[in-house]
Design a protein around this nucleic acid. Structure first.
Length: 263
DNA sequence: ATAAATGTTAAGAA
DNA sequence: GTTCTTAACATTTA
């Protein structure tokens, strides 16, 4: 159930095995998560390689191994990573298990919307190059945001879910951002006033940073008073007004929002 | 039993 | 050519 903060958390789990050597690879090649890679290639080349580095960018992860092996992981809707003892036997929905000297690195994904990529190359793989600016970096600024909004008639929520411009945002983070920015999810992108754009930018950056701080290492809770704590329940209330939240489908996704404070 | 779930993308419409 | 919307993907859970 991963957006950028949860992805950071899962990356940090596997990161604990940095330095470990892959002894054996167990995978189920028929599964949909291998639809864009060659599982045979992966199973052949990864044993003997040592985990050296790991990165996240938005919802994507990249694990770098010695022998120029690169493993890309996307968790889709229901994916997760874990580290288990070396003797671990793959269980239901475990599609890839790397048995290493420091434990079993497991990729599990019941719905299989996730994705495994593999490549052996000197340089960073193609699918990792040319990534859009990280939302927490200085490269993501007001100018970028304005350019993304410009001329668009789509609802704000639809645009913020676009990974090409807002890498790492997902359903709960977008609802949180729009609620904290007092903007209606269905609001047209090109209708924002200058002040509203500034607030939107500031909320995107703060919510990303705080979420990664709270969730990225320990999967803790986000701050009291965030919409997050209310949005999952059908009885959720606006933390400000205590009035029942609206629930509508915007951009094809269930959306929780407050009709009093979001305009 | 039916619907919905923290995601992405191909296809068709505008 | 772009932008926008919807359906489809596969499985579990409420």
């Amino acid at each position: 159930m991963p957006e950028l903060a949860e992805v950071e958390y899962y990356r940090n789990l596997w990161k604990k095995a940095t330095g470990a050597v892959v002894k054996r690879v167990e995978l189920n090649a028929e599964k949909r998560v291998f639809r864009k890679t060659s599982p045979g290639d992966l199973a052949k080349k990864l044993p003997g390689s040592r985990l050296i580095q790991s990165y996240t960018h938005g919802k994507q992860m990249l694990f770098g191994f010695s022998n120029h092996c690169w493993l890309g992981v996307h968790l889709g809707m229901s994916g997760s990573l874990k580290v288990e003892p070396k003797e671990y036997k793959p269980q239901k929905h475990d599609h890839l298990v790397l048995i290493t000297s420091k434990g079993a690195l497991v990729f599990n994904d019941p719905r299989m919307f996730g994705l495994i990529l593999f490549e052996q190359s000197q340089e960073l793989p193609l699918w990792w190059s040319r990534l859009p600016p990280d939302l927490m970096s200085d490269d993501f600024n007001l100018e970028r945001l304005e350019k993304a909004l410009k001329g668009k008639t789509a609802p704000l929520k639809a645009l913020l879910l676009t990974q090409k411009s807002f890498p790492g945002l997902g359903n709960w983070m977008v609802d949180e951002i729009l609620w904290q920015a007092h903007l209606k999810p269905a609001r047209q992108c090109n209708s924002l006033k200058s002040k509203e754009k500034q607030i939107l930018l500031e909320r995107i950056k703060t919510i990303c940073r705080v979420s990664v701080e709270r969730i990225g290492q320990t999967y803790g809770d986000v701050p009291e008073g965030w919409l997050f704590h209310q949005r999952w329940s059908p009885k959720g209330k606006c933390p400000l007004h205590k009035t029942p939240l609206k629930r509508t489908v915007v951009a094809g996704r269930t959306t929780a929002w407050c009709s009093e404070c979001q305009r």
